[in-house]
């Protein structure tokens, strides 16, 4: 084999370029080695060239593909941003509407004597930043925006729960009183603890014609239904400073032992309106309001008019 290679190395070729016209003949003497390496490098060059060409073509195609995909993604992104903005706007609108509904809910709750669910209210004001400018979402704050929207929806849902509760209560009221109206006592005249219920007192010593609700001096006392004040002043029979309200339909309410009365006889009052402040006037051993409900002059259990 070695001998063969040596022989091959010595071989030479002459390449003659012979014009078929009269021009000069060119001849090139080529040793086999040169021919071999030349051919090899030519082949390598060709391979490289083809490779480079195909790579260039490929990358051109890929770049085009990438650009297409990029454009597509940009389109999608823009669309999604628009949708996000729309969604946020919708959430805001929903929030506004919910606020309106909430006002109605609160009225409803006042009418039906429910305490407003403060826990549902609290996060609403502090978090959602209502009324502020809407910032165009970018990938960084998309999450924040989504959180914001989802939070708003959560708040809205809790409001919905509150409203559902109120409406349920309302329904129950409706079933108790088919002719329910603002003129039927339905709320507590004040906050506080029931210190003495309606009926026979402990030990049966005497009959208690109302309920006593005890709290601090000057706790507001409110009208439990719409009506007209028929008496406002001091009662020497033991009620002390007292207010009588006629609600029509034979219904009257009485609030006794007040420290101060802030309405006058003949004055029209609304449910929830403050008529007096709690005190201990008349036959009383401490600050409380004595609350009576009368139907056609007869005392009835006020518990039936508290919801």
């Amino acid at each position: 084999m070695d001998g063969n290679i040596k022989q091959e190395d010595n071989r030479e070729y002459t390449i003659k370029i012979i014009p078929h016209q009269g021009e000069t003949v060119h001849s090139v003497r080529v040793p086999f080695r040169v021919l071999k390496y030349g051919l090899a490098s030519l082949c390598a060059g060709a391979v490289l060239f083809v490779g480079a060409l195909s790579f260039a073509t490929y990358s051109a195609f890929t770049a085009k593909d990438d650009a297409d995909r990029m454009a597509q993604l940009k389109k999608v992104n823009t669309l999604q941003q628009e949708q996000l903005t729309q969604l946020a706007k919708k959430a805001n609108t929903l929030q506004d509407q919910m606020d309106e509904v909430r006002e109605i809910e609160q009225e409803l709750q006042m009418v039906s004597g429910l305490v407003a669910p403060e826990d549902a209210e609290a996060p609403t004001e502090s978090f959602d930043g209502q009324g502020g400018p809407w910032i165009e979402p970018n990938p960084k704050n998309v999450n924040i925006a989504l959180d914001n929207i989802s939070h708003k929806l959560d708040v809205t849902r809790s409001h919905m729960d509150g409203i559902r509760e109120a409406i349920k209560k309302q329904q129950k009221l409706g079933s108790y009183h088919t002719s329910y109206s603002a003129e039927i006592p339905s709320i507590w005249p004040s906050s506080g603890d029931v210190s003495s219920p309606y009926g026979m007192r402990w030990g049966g010593s005497d009959f208690h014609p109302g309920i006593d609700i005890a709290n601090d001096y000057d706790t507001p006392i409110v009208a439990t239904a719409d009506g007209v004040v028929t008496f406002a002043g001091y009662n020497s029979g033991g009620y002390g400073n007292m207010v009588d309200i006629d609600h029509g339909n034979g219904l009257t309410t009485r609030y006794g032992h007040a420290e101060e009365v802030v309405v006058e006889a003949g004055q029209a009052v609304r449910r929830g309106q403050i008529i007096a402040f709690m005190g201990s006037t008349g036959f009383s051993t401490g600050p409380h309001v004595h609350y009576e409900v009368r139907v056609n002059g007869e005392v009835v259990n006020p518990e039936n008019y508290l919801w």
Binding site: H20, G22, E23, T24
Partner: peptide, 24 residues
């Protein structure tokens, strides 16, 4: 066949061929 007389070619005598190019 064909005959080609290159630039440095010199022919003294008759030529018979299919075609002839004379550059010499």
């Amino acid at each position: 066949g064909d005959a080609i007389i290159g630039e440095s070619g010199i022919i003294v005598g008759d030529i018979k061929a299919r075609s002839l190019v004379v550059a010499g």
